[in-house]
């Protein structure tokens, strides 16, 4: 669903680690989800893409501690990542070895400069 991004301040409080980097591998992908078919011209149907377990290559760490790579979990939602997808990843507390990627659109939720500016406030 093409909802606006959450206000960044409401998400940053849950971000244990924030890194700038890119997806270097898709480790696992969840099952396809039922899709609502659009009538002509309809938008904002709210169809979700499946969850993904991915490996991130870390270029910079903005908050917390992270190694050169991080295993992350993209939940079911309004976006999908591919190898090479990059940006600022806000990561929540790890569950089952993978840290959930926060933000409605993952690394496309807020640009890196917006994240940095939020830290500065």
């Amino acid at each position: 669903m093409a909802l606006p991004p959450e206000p960044i301040d409401t998400v940053l409080v849950d971000a244990k680690v924030v890194v700038v980097g890119f997806v270097d591998a898709i480790l696992e992908t969840g099952p396809e989800l039922p899709q609502r078919q659009a009538k002509k011209g309809e938008r904002d149907l709210g169809n979700k893409a499946p969850w993904q377990r991915v490996r991130l290559t870390v270029e910079r760490t903005l908050r917390g501690e992270a190694g050169k790579t991080v295993e992350a979990f993209k939940p079911e939602g309004a976006y999908i990542v591919a190898t090479g997808t990059r940006g600022a990843f806000l990561l929540g507390a790890p569950e089952g070895g993978s840290a959930p990627i926060l933000g409605r659109y993952g690394p496309d939720t807020w640009r890196e400069d917006v994240v940095v500016a939020a830290f500065a406030r």
Partner: peptide, 14 residues
């Protein structure tokens, strides 16, 4: 959705 990742444009959006 895969078409839009990192594009600055969002899927299923008006």
């Amino acid at each position: 959705k895969a078409r839009y990742t990192n594009s600055g444009v969002y899927a299923d959006h008006a």
